[in-house]
Amino acid sequence: MIRIENVSLRIRATPILRDINLTIPKGGVVALIGPNGAGKSSLLSLIARLRPLQQGTIHIDGLPVDRTPGPELARVVAILRQDSTVASRLKVRELVGFGRFPHGRGRLTAADLEIVDQALARFDLTDLADRFLETLSGGQRQRALVAMAFAQDTDYLLLDEPLNNLDMHHARELMRSLRAIADTRARTMVIVLHDVNQASAYADRIVAMQNGRIIADAAPLDLLTPDTLETVFGFRMRVEIIAGKPFVLHHL
C-alpha cells in the first residue's frame, strides 16, 4: 500500500502540490491524469524519493520513503521518468540488466538473466538486444527504458507517461502487460497517462489532478463524465459508453 498524507511541495515559494492525501492499495492499476503542469510528475518524484519531501509523509508498505535506505527501497519501488535520456553508449541488454542492480548489487545470476530475457521479450526487444541505445528509434528506446523498470521486478511500479513515442500496437501491448502483471502477480502500477481512453480501458481507478490538487478520484465509469472532464481539462467533450467502458471523444 502507498500512503500519502498531507504532502505539499513548494519550489521557490511557488506551490506545486497542495495538501495531497492519497491511499493506493496493493495490487491494481491506478491512472493519474490531468493537464500539463498539474503536478503529476512532481507527485511521482516524491513517491520515488527523487525529490526530498518538504511536508507530509509517504509510506510504501509501511516504509517511510524519506528514511528508508536507498537499496532497500529500490527492491520495493521502481520508477520510469517522463524525460529519461540516456547519453551513455550502452547496449539494450546492458541497460535492462541494470534494472537487476538492486537485487544482486551488480552480479547477474542465471535467474537475473532469465528475468532480463523475459523483459526483453515482453517489449519486443529481443532482436535489438545487442544494439547500442543511440542507434534505436525514439519508441524503441522508450520500450528499453520501460523494460529496465520492469526488470527491477518491484511490487510497486511508477510510470510517468510510458506511452510516449509508442505506436498503437506497442502502446496496447504495454497496457495489456501492465494489466496482466497487476492481475497475476498482485503488482501495483501507478501510471501517468494523457490518453484518457487508455486509462478507461485498463485502469481500475483514475486520479485526476489539477493545479497541485487531487480534484477527482474514482473508477473510470464514474470519473470519465463530461462534467468532471470539463473541470479537469477546461473544455467539454462527448463521452460514449462502448462495451461497458467510457469512451471519450476529446478530439472532436
Binding site: 520508477i79 550502452l90 541494470f98
Partner: peptide, 20 residues
Amino acid sequence: ADRLTIMALGRDAAIGLGID
C-alpha cells in the same frame, strides 16, 4: 564499476536503483 556506469545514467536513475 556497475555503480559508476549507473551514475552516467543520471542522478534520478541512480537513486531509483538504490545508489547514493
